[in-house]
């Protein structure tokens, strides 16, 4: 595929922007591709609806917006409701099965779910739910090579939380998706 357009949605404070940043850095700095990451957020610093998008390409990214997504990662019901319609046919949906409960028809897409937040809570740090989800999406939707993702996480999170985040990534990566 020439281009991979990834939309990540949730609410403020979940690390939505950090997730797309880690993804963008993985594919650009560690996989040698090009990526363009843009964000859309409300004026509230926390709690509001939040989404971010990464366009990944072998070539330079000319058009940076995601009108149609190849991959949708949803960490909130609102984000799922809002962006499912822009996921292309046979596009891949990865959602948090505890946070997205009112499901629409998934006939035209490939849906994979993981209780990312619950897994993070089991690890003792709810905050790494986004990294669990990144691991899951790396395995299920091949948004990046796993090695680039691991390096990117290592370079993006505070040193004292590296191990925790690496574990979160592996848990998500190795999780067998529910469809």
């Amino acid at each position: 595929m020439a281009q991979l357009r990834v939309k990540i949605s949730g609410f403020g404070g979940q690390g939505i922007v950090l997730s797309s940043y880690i993804l963008g850095k993985a594919v650009t700095i560690f996989d040698g591709k090009n990526a363009s990451m843009t964000q859309v957020y409300g004026p509230e610093a926390r709690g509001g609806a939040c989404s971010s998008q990464v366009v990944i390409s072998e070539e330079e990214v000319d058009y940076p917006l995601v009108d149609t997504a190849d991959v949708l990662i949803a960490l909130s019901q609102e984000g799922y409701d809002k962006f499912l319609p822009i996921l292309r046919d046979q596009g891949i949906l990865c959602y948090d099965s505890d946070l997205v409960t009112k499901l629409h028809s998934h006939d035209r897409v490939i849906a994979k779910s993981i209780p990312a937040t619950r897994i993070a809570e089991e690890m003792g740090k709810k905050i790494v739910a986004n990294i669990v989800m990144l691991g899951f999406a790396t395995a299920q939707a091949e948004i990046s090579t796993p090695d680039a993702m691991r390096q990117s996480i290592r370079k993006s999170v505070p040193a004292k939380f590296t191990d925790l985040n690496m574990e979160a990534f592996e848990r998500g990566f190795n999780y067998q998706g529910e469809t």
Binding site: T28, N34, S36, M37, T38, Q39, V61, P64
Partner: peptide, 9 residues
């Protein structure tokens, strides 16, 4: 605001 907040290589 797009170019300002856009993240790229």
């Amino acid at each position: 605001a797009v170019v300002g907040h856009m993240t790229e290589k």
